[in-house]
């Protein structure tokens, strides 16, 4: 398929996924804020959230105080924040619009309807008046977008690039959520293990990736940070775990393989193998933060490789590509 088309599909999926994960994080944070806690702890919670997307400096430049309303404004609707939910959903829709002919009517109408409803919600101040409802809506639209894709698209290359975008973005987001939560947990004065605040803290993390009930099912035990990390990093059956995302990436890369993508497949395969044969104890020994930082760097590089193999294969290298297509000595 056309490289530019693939690029739009890939980013349509990434932006949709990013909007969903942002909504998930905000939602959990808003719920947590209902728990009794000191003003300082509350502020720390919001700071951690901004840290996930490396947005604290941008936030501080715009808002006088780190309050729930300000963070929600910034993350849900601020037009200058490229990662705000409004901007992500708009970008997803613009990408879809650019390739609407490649999508089924249902997929396009879903993306377009999301964008139209978004304008109404922003106008009606839904993020301010009932943040929970708004985040629920974002998640729901993302589910719908994914479901409509799975339910109506021909499983050809177009489908694969959408899936690839979803998996890659989700791997990135889950890793970030985990990293920031663990960093924040280390930073704060640890409550006594197993105590109430800690329970809520990790339960919130699990809920943000829809894994609270799953944790109970898998471990049938109290919630401990080590197992939370194990579940979110290594469990192959949890849809938002790093392992599951990398499974998806590797399988999709196989489907779209081209003449120059072997190195990218190898790179992704190694990353997956590392997860597949890892033990949580070893990861914790290396240090979770350094492990996840390394993982995020790999995901970033993988994105770059996918881009140059498939999406913008000739960006800045027209001469190089033409020498490939015209081997008869056209220089």
């Amino acid at each position: 398929m056309l490289s530019r088309t693939a690029d739009h599909l890939f980013w349509m999926a990434r932006y949709t996924e990013r909007a969903e994960n942002t909504a998930r994080m905000l939602d959990v944070r808003v719920q947590n804020a209902l728990l009794p806690q000191s003003a300082l702890a509350a502020e720390q919670g919001w700071r951690a959230l901004l840290g996930i997307s490396e947005l604290e400096p941008a936030f501080n430049a715009k808002y006088p105080a780190l309050t729930q309303n300000n963070v929600i404004d910034f993350m849900a609707r601020n037009p200058d924040n490229p990662s705000s939910i409004a901007n992500c959903l708009t970008a997803a829709r613009e990408n879809a619009r650019a390739v609407r002919g490649t999508l089924t009517t249902e997929v396009w109408e879903t993306e377009n309807a999301t964008w139209i409803e978004l304008q109404q919600h922003l106008k009606g101040k839904l993020p301010e008046n009932s943040p929970g409802k708004f985040f629920e809506w974002v998640k729901h639209r993302s589910h719908l977008s994914r479901g409509v894709t799975l339910g109506t698209m021909l499983q050809d290359d177009a489908f694969s690039f959408i899936r690839l975008g979803t998996f890659l973005e989700r791997a990135d987001n889950t890793a970030r959520i985990l990293d920031v939560k663990f960093l924040a947990a280390q930073g704060s004065d640890a409550d006594e293990p197993g105590g109430q605040p800690e329970f809520y803290y990790w339960a919130a993390l699990l809920r943000s990736v829809s894994a609270f009930e799953i944790y109970r099912k898998v471990y049938r035990d109290v919630i401990t940070p080590v197992r939370v990390a194990e579940l979110l990093i290594l469990h192959p059956k949890l849809p938002r775990s790093l392992m599951a995302c990398m499974d998806g990436v590797v399988a999709t890369l196989e489907d779209i393989r081209n003449d120059i993508s072997a190195d990218t497949e190898r790179f992704a395969g190694k990353l997956r193998a590392e997860l597949q044969f890892a033990r949580i104890e070893d990861i914790l020994e290396e240090g979770l933060h350094s492990y996840l930082t390394r993982f995020l760097e790999c995901i970033n590089e993988l994105g770059g490789r996918i881009s140059s193999d498939f999406l913008v294969p000739m960006a800045g290298g027209q001469e190089q590509s033409q020498s490939q297509t015209a081997p008869d000595g056209r220089s």
Binding site: M1, L2, S3, R4, A6, D157, F161, I256, N258, D259, F310, L311, P313, M314, Q318, S321, Q322, Q324, T325, A326, D328, R330
Partner: peptide, 19 residues
């Protein structure tokens, strides 16, 4: 336009599987 290029006196489009 950017999706296409001329080589060997033919027009090609850039696809994920090459020209």
């Amino acid at each position: 336009g950017e999706d296409m290029f001329v080589a060997d006196n033919r027009v090609f489009m850039r696809t994920t599987n090459g020209p």
